Amino acid sequence: MIDVQRLQVLLTVAEHGSFNRAAAALRLTPSAVSQQVAALERSLGAQVVARSTRGVTLTRVGQIMVGAAESVAAELEHAQQQITELSTGRTQLTVATFTSGGQFLLPAALTQLMAAHPRTVLHVREGEPEDTLPLVRQGAVDLALAYHFDGPLPVGPGPGSSLEWMPLLEDPLYVVLPPGHRLADRDALDLADLAAEPWVLGCLKTEAYLRRYAEQAGFDPEIHGTTTDYFFARSLVAAGMGISLIPSIALAPELPGLSAVPIKSPGPIRHIGVATISGRNRPCITTLIRSLREQAMRHNGH
């Protein structure tokens, strides 16, 4: 019989990448964490992590067991939700979102949700997809508004097969130029046109994305500022620090004098969607997804 507590320890080790960090999260000693993982390996007759001086990585067996640990956690959380609903008559719903997507899509969708399901107790958590998607798989979050660029979803450790991904909209990135910029009147820009420009960016992942596209265009971008907020990045552009790369949904509210110019195809795009656990179509989740789709369709219609 596989010990559920040991599965939880393995899941925490996979999330944090080392025994020491997992121990801090679990409020255990590193030795206790190591012993729990070793005991799990003995019961399975197989190694679940590969140990090195740089931390630990999952073996194929470990990936399978992390997937099982997430399924167990999700089922236990779902059972707790059902018990709470039976005892209180109220539905608990936890929604995770990244910042710009939440600001753009969630408010109107949540208004519709609460009108249709007024006895829903709603919780919203902010986070990047690499943090929130594993929480969906584990049952800690019911739905995540998330995104990815031109690679796969950042689902984290384990196979991620329990996730259901529903695309909402494509969110192209625009070049934002300061007042009076020589290229502000262009209908579209090639990144090569911007090789000599300084950049200020509103997201670390946007910087990595810019560098990849800039390399294809034959230059190495000069980064003068990196923030974690697209509005702040546009404020720095307005102050004359450089130009920026901003997703279309993060271009509001407008800042006076700034120009947002599309990038010639094929340009960088964020793919925005909703992640849930397969088969968990509770009425409140169905309503929220429908409302999010309506908000996305309004944006696409523009």
Rank of each mutant, 00 (worst) to 15 (best):
R6Q: 15
A214S: 12
S248C: 06
T84R: 12
I223G: 01
Q112V: 07
R6A: 10
H123K: 15
I263V: 15
G101V: 03
T94V: 14
S278Q: 15
N281Y: 13
A192F: 02
A140E: 12
P118F: 08
M65L: 14
A239N: 10
E130D: 11
R293S: 14
W199P: 00
I246H: 01
R42H: 13
A96M: 08
G151M: 06
L76I: 00
T120P: 09
A79V: 02
L173Q: 11
S162Y: 00
A217Q: 08
T91S: 12
A109Y: 05
R182L: 06
V9K: 00
G151V: 04
L113M: 09
W199N: 01
S162W: 04
A188G: 01
E77L: 04
T29I: 11
T228I: 09
E222I: 03
H302I: 09
I83S: 09
L258F: 05
G279V: 10
K264M: 10
L194S: 01
D190H: 12
Q216K: 15
R282A: 15
H302E: 12
D185I: 01
S265Q: 13
L201E: 04
E170K: 12
V48T: 15
A116F: 03
A238F: 10
L183Q: 05
P262Q: 04
L86R: 15
A24L: 15
P198H: 13
S278D: 06
H16V: 01
R119A: 14
D3F: 03
D190V: 04
L122C: 10
L255W: 02
V49K: 01
L177N: 02
A239Y: 05
E70Q: 15
A214G: 07
Y213W: 12
G17P: 05
I246D: 07
P167A: 11
R6S: 11
S291T: 13
I249H: 14
R298V: 05
E215Y: 02
E128D: 14
T57R: 14
F231C: 11
E126V: 11
G273N: 05
W199C: 03
L236A: 06
H16I: 00
D150K: 02
Q216C: 07
V124F: 12
V176G: 02
A195I: 03
P179F: 06
Q35L: 14
L292A: 06
I272C: 09
R60M: 04
E77Q: 10
L86Y: 08
A146N: 02
E126K: 08
G180I: 03
Q63A: 11
F19W: 06
D193T: 01
G218D: 08
V175C: 04
A188R: 15
L26F: 10
E130N: 07
A144F: 08
L11K: 00
L189V: 11
L189F: 07
G55Q: 09
R280D: 07
Q112E: 15
A74I: 05
M297Q: 15
L110G: 07
I223T: 05
A188C: 03
V121W: 09
E126G: 14
V175N: 00
R186A: 15
V48D: 02
E254W: 03
A296W: 07
L105E: 06
P167R: 05
S162E: 15
L153C: 05
K264V: 15
S259K: 13
A38K: 11
I2C: 01
Y174T: 03
V155P: 00
Y209Q: 07
P253E: 11
A108F: 04
F232I: 14
A22L: 12
R298A: 13
A296Q: 09
